[in-house]
């Protein structure tokens, strides 16, 4: 009995964490290149609605996922052109992008409200995926495994590859990177596209895997959590994974507590718990390190133009 509850908690936890993890991982790469894109929520929503629309029309969840990635990149490119090519303010443009994404997804999704599709199924065969307790490991869909692989991939990319080194260099000191001869703007375009792709995929996880139906503002502010996690994780993929899963865990706890009918704690306090716990834990992890301010990419949010 106990193990059944535990397995179900793990399943909920992983599902709740994955979209945040994806979006945050994309934003981490964007910020490492020195760009602050506050439009994560907007990109998630356009990804979510594009994914749902395509999956609903074609009946293929796989095509829906591809569409969500393309939609995320397309939305990110609006931001990239405005901030990189036209050197618009990144904060204002990012906020506008979120507002745009909310509106665009409502408009496109208007005809789909309440419609349902077949949700994204587990990756592994029925035997493993439905096993009472093995399903905690093998019962997830492909996006979950992909997101974990991406954490490892991004971590290795940033720390161990030359391309990752150049990306970090662009975020640390764009003028120097330019002086050495690296294409600062081009690298940032690529990073923003990657961020858009993962945000779109994270958004689609809501509409294609978590709740396989369309509702307005489906992502419910998770894009903002992703943004905060990037900062609190000190721009480190490993901590990002921890932060995202911690957030998912406390959220699962909140759901369980509600289901169990706990009344001595106000539901509002429970709803706050995931946010508080995440901030608390990640802040405590950053304490006691004197070089804290060196974590942020030095050129984060600063516009760059070739003079």
């Amino acid at each position: 009995m106990n193990s059944v509850i535990l397995v179900s908690i793990i399943m909920t936890l992983v599902a709740a964490s994955t979209p945040i993890l994806l979006a945050a991982l994309g934003e981490l790469v964007v910020e490492k290149s020195g760009v602050l894109n506050l439009g994560v929520e907007g990109m998630m929503l356009t990804g979510a609605v594009a994914g749902f629309a395509v999956a609903f029309s074609t009946g293929s969840v796989a095509l829906g996922l591809v569409a969500s990635v393309i939609a995320g990149i397309a939305t990110a490119m609006i931001f990239a052109v405005l901030t990189l090519s036209l050197t618009a303010n990144q904060v204002a443009t990012g906020l506008a992008l979120t507002i745009f994404g909310v509106g665009a997804s409502s408009l496109i999704g208007a005809g789909f409200v309440g419609r349902t599709i077949d949700r994204l199924g587990p990756l592994f065969p029925e035997v493993l995926a439905s096993h009472p307790w093995l399903r905690a490991l093998f019962g997830h869909d492909i996006i979950v495994y992909l997101s974990l692989a991406l954490v490892l991939g991004v971590s290795v990319f940033l720390r161990r590859t030359r391309a990752g080194l150049i990306l970090r260099a662009v975020g640390e000191n764009d003028a120097s990177a330019h002086a050495i001869g690296y294409p600062v703007i081009g690298i940032r375009y690529a990073a923003i596209a990657f961020g858009g792709a993962l945000a779109g995929l994270g958004g689609a996880y809501f509409s294609l895997a978590l709740t396989p139906m369309w509702a307005d503002r489906l992502t419910a502010g998770r894009g903002w959590i992703a943004l905060a996690l990037v900062v609190f994780s000190a721009w480190k993929p490993g901590r990002l994974l921890l932060g995202a899963y911690l957030f998912g865990a406390v959220m699962t706890f909140e759901l369980q507590a509600k289901a169990a009918g706990i009344t001595w704690l106000a539901p509002e306090v429970l709803a706050m718990a995931p946010y508080l716990a995440t901030i608390l834990v990640l802040t405590m992890m950053s304490l006691g390190r004197k070089t804290g301010r060196l974590d942020a990419p030095a050129c984060l949010g600063k516009p760059f133009s070739v003079s």
Partner: peptide
């Protein structure tokens, strides 16, 4: 360069 093209955090 006069102002070094270095990356402080690396």
């Amino acid at each position: 360069f006069q102002h070094f093209s270095l990356f402080d955090a690396m």
